[in-house]
Computed example of a mutant assay.
Amino acid sequence: MKLSRAAAFTTSLLLGAALTLTGGTAAQADTSAAAVDYVALGDSYSSGVGAGSYDSSSGNCKRTPRAFPALWAAANSPASFAFTACSGARTADVTSGQLGPLSAATDLVSLTVGGNDAGFADVMTTCVLQSEATCVSRVNEAKRFVDTTLPGRLDSVYNAVRAKAPSARVVVLGYPRFYKIGGSCLAGLTENERRAINSGADHLNAATAKRAADHGYTFADVTPAFTGHEICSGASWLHSVNWLNIGESYHPTAAGHSGGYLPAFRSAL
């Protein structure tokens, strides 16, 4: 019986893990991903905004070797690695500008998208600069968008990925909760605002997970990995408002990619 590329990829990863657990050499274990063609798509949570050391050739996309896709590729030496994720990307940007490297030979795809469509940046700006009531209202507006409009946009991306990479294993990663409630922050947003923002992230993750599952894709929830590392935790893996580099606000640090996103991605494989 001939295995599909996705099944063969999964089998190879399991074999690599078994070699590691039973004393196989690192060189042997590394071969488990040697034949994998990997493409990393998505927004700033994939490109690595907030992690620093950006590749100048990526321009405003701000891709970095500290982002989880690059970390996984560096550790596993896949046969090919195409990194097209871009800061600010919405669903339409992924379908129109990032899918070029996908092909029938692609084995693995990672993707984060939806936050920009739902107006994440505007939500955070509203909550930082305006009243609690206005913040909560803006979060609720974003939730309505997630309920009514985002599913169709996600379907468009997921369908386009499958059309170009029919045998690939696709891992869709979510977004973290941003705040530890009752944490160490003494100023800034109110607890009600923080709860509303966390609720918005949960709402977005739930919608994304459902659409991913309906397409046969794996959803990787990063919330457990970031628990204890939210803003106000005292050990945050997320930038709070960064007035010196406003674009990094509410994005994972390098530790958030290596300690949060990368393990969640690995666990999904």
Rank of each mutant, 00 (worst) to 15 (best):
A187W: 11
S137K: 07
L129A: 15
P166L: 12
D55I: 05
I246Y: 11
S47Q: 05
T126Q: 10
D43Y: 02
D93M: 04
G152D: 05
V146H: 12
W72Y: 12
S96D: 15
C232M: 03
S156V: 08
V172Y: 07
P263W: 13
Y217T: 02
M124E: 06
T190K: 04
L238P: 04
S53W: 15
K143A: 15
S258K: 01
A206Q: 13
P65V: 08
N159F: 15
T25D: 13
Y54A: 02
K180T: 00
T253K: 06
G119S: 13
V139W: 07
T10K: 14
L21Q: 14
S96Y: 08
T91G: 05
G259N: 03
C135Q: 08
A133C: 07
A160D: 05
G259T: 00
S236G: 09
V161Q: 10
V39W: 00
F226L: 02
S77G: 10
P224F: 11
A264G: 14
H251P: 01
P263M: 12
T218R: 13
S46Y: 04
A187D: 09
V94F: 11
L13A: 12
P151R: 04
D202R: 11
C185D: 00
S96G: 14
V109W: 01
M124N: 02
S199N: 13
R66F: 10
D43E: 11
Y261C: 07
F81R: 01
A235C: 06
L13N: 10
N60Q: 08
V172E: 13
M1E: 01
W237C: 00
T148S: 05
C61K: 03
L238S: 01
V170N: 11
L238V: 07
T223Y: 08
T253R: 12
A187Y: 14
D37M: 09
L14K: 07
R66C: 11
V39F: 04
S87Y: 10
T125P: 06
G183L: 13
A104G: 01
N192I: 05
S46W: 05
V171H: 00
S53Q: 12
L173C: 01
D147W: 09
D55V: 06
G42L: 00
A105V: 14
C232Y: 08
L111C: 06
E141D: 09
R162I: 05
T84Q: 00
Q98P: 10
